[in-house]
Design a binder for these strands. Structure first.
Lengths: 149, 149
DNA sequence: GTATGTGCAAACCCTTTGCGCACTT
DNA sequence: AAGTGCGCAAAGGGTTTGCACATAC
């Protein structure tokens, strides 16, 4: 298990926990642990991963609690739920900045990107079809460029 | 075999069935029925819908067969599997022409669109990140425009 | 005739939920 | 103290699979 040692060190209130407080969510010990896990994640973990990382801090936490908390946090706009096409939900901190994901299909690595021109184009495509875009999902699946060519 | 030839005799071979033959797939009656259902679909049906439509032609067909056939057809590039974000697979005839979907979140209607400029942009985004795009998923979720433009 | 496909039901995976106890406010 | 959250295990929805029988080539 590759847990960072500072998982166990005393921590200041995380950004995510602060967001939760602002939204008036009741903060339990389990939710605080999950906040820490989410704040320290630099990937896009699924529920199982979040559960395992949380269980490393508090072994009594239940995966049902993780599911319930993910839903709660998502509805409170604290985190964002992703569908990266592998049949389970993944989560990231909600940074209120629209972006998409490029998935390296060899390594599973996920790279974030944003592009204003792209946003404008999507909006225009929707408008041309008679729609206002209210949401959008875009993932690019790719392989590292071959040095040749 | 208990099925009446009646069901099939007046039908021309569908485009999808022809594709299956070209790919060398063994054609059973169940698969032929599913080919008809898929050929006649003008929506993006899920497995349950395909199963019901097929069962209207051959009541003895099993949903397991539909699942197996969908996978087979998808792997043979006869149909394309879609993920429209509602937790179940949807399918469309594979027209070998890259396009995406706009989902009307009020009515559930799905509109197809393609845009070369968009394709180029995606490819460039991937390239700029050091990747060759091998696949891509894009759905726009929208509501009918309220104001006239 | 043999390999392959099918129907059925059980199994699977991810996720949700009913219940009684524990906790936050 | 009241109301909410938690852990557990069972249930749910979509999908896959083991088995014995049926079918295509």
């Amino acid at each position: 298990m590759a847990l960072k040692p500072d998982y166990f060190a005393p921590m200041n209130i995380t950004r995510i926990e602060k967001l939760c407080q602002e939204r008036g969510l009741k903060m339990t010990e389990q939710r605080r642990v999950i906040c820490r896990v989410l704040s320290q994640a630099d990937d896009h973990p699924d529920v199982e991963s979040i559960f395992q990382r949380a269980a490393a801090i508090d072994p009594k936490i239940s995966i049902a609690t993780v599911y319930r908390t993910m839903r709660l946090f998502e509805e409170a706009n604290v985190i964002e739920k992703l569908d990266l096409g592998d049949g389970r939900a993944r989560y990231e901190e909600n940074r209120d900045e629209h972006h998409h994901h490029l998935v390296d299909i060899k390594s599973g690595r996920v790279i974030e990107f944003k592009n204003e021109e792209l946003e404008a184009m999507k909006r225009k495509i929707a408008a041309d079809l008679g729609y206002d875009m209210v949401d959008c999902r875009l993932e690019i699946y790719g392989i590292p460029k071959t040095s040749k060519a």
